[in-house]
Amino acid sequence: MVSKLEEQLQMAPYLALDSPLAISILTSALKEEVEKAGFHKVVLGLSGGIDSALSLYLAVQAFGKDNVIAVCMPYRTSSASSLTDAQKVILDTGVQSLTVDISPQIDAYFELMPEATPLRKGNKMARERMTILYDLSAHYNALVVGTSNRTELLLGYGTQFGDAASAVNPLGDLYKTQVRQLSKFIGVPSSILEKAPSADLWEDQTDEKELGFSYYDVDRFLYHLLDKRLSREQLVQQGFSDTLVEQVTKRIARNQYKRRMPIIIKISNRTVGVDFRYMRDWGL
């Protein structure tokens, strides 16, 4: 049987990567970025989904299992299968892990905010998890490894200063299709490869239901829009619907703020981020 991933890569061979070469670039760069900053360990949040699983396998290849700490941070409504899948990955890689239930602090806060929407709750949970990872980062002297892929970053489908926060992100330049390809190659358990992606903020939530299109469709679209620089007319000629073109191009622009540092109002002649320009690896 041809899997959906194989189908997508046949339809869109331009999204396929040389897996060993991609993994070698990702792991060597990840290792170098962390080690030259003076760290030897990394910590990351493990949700049971495919993105954090791939980040974990890459981190294990880069640093060895003894230098990677996986943190599971379920909320009481998190699905049981997410935790089981996270456990599978922990067992398979042999990394050190810990579980922090975020229900007490989340519930304590929202008792004061009974009118909070699911969106507010989801964002709060994502940011709670971020603060835990950064606390453990200080505790273990380990840098936080990111788990946001390129599709999510472009669509802005993530929480600013929440799941989008990290010190180094090995997935940020990989479309979801490519995350799936590399995950399969690197040996992420099949139950994780095959399930519908979900932020798991409420029951039966799936990314694709919420976004209104599938990751495979939007990845092909993003490739033609960004990598091939096609115009709107050309995109429609390629068979992408007007609605998708409209919806996605708007999303990308609207969420640019999530991809940038806060705006600084210019007063001086060397403003941080404007005309005070240095790489983060300055002197490393």
């Binding site: 061979p13 331009y14 396929a16 990567l17 040389d18 070469l21 991609a22 670039i25």
Partner: peptide, 10 residues
């Protein structure tokens, strides 16, 4: 730089 990776090469 190593960029524009595809299925066969950089």
């Amino acid at each position: 730089p190593a960029r524009s990776l595809d299925q066969s090469e950089i």
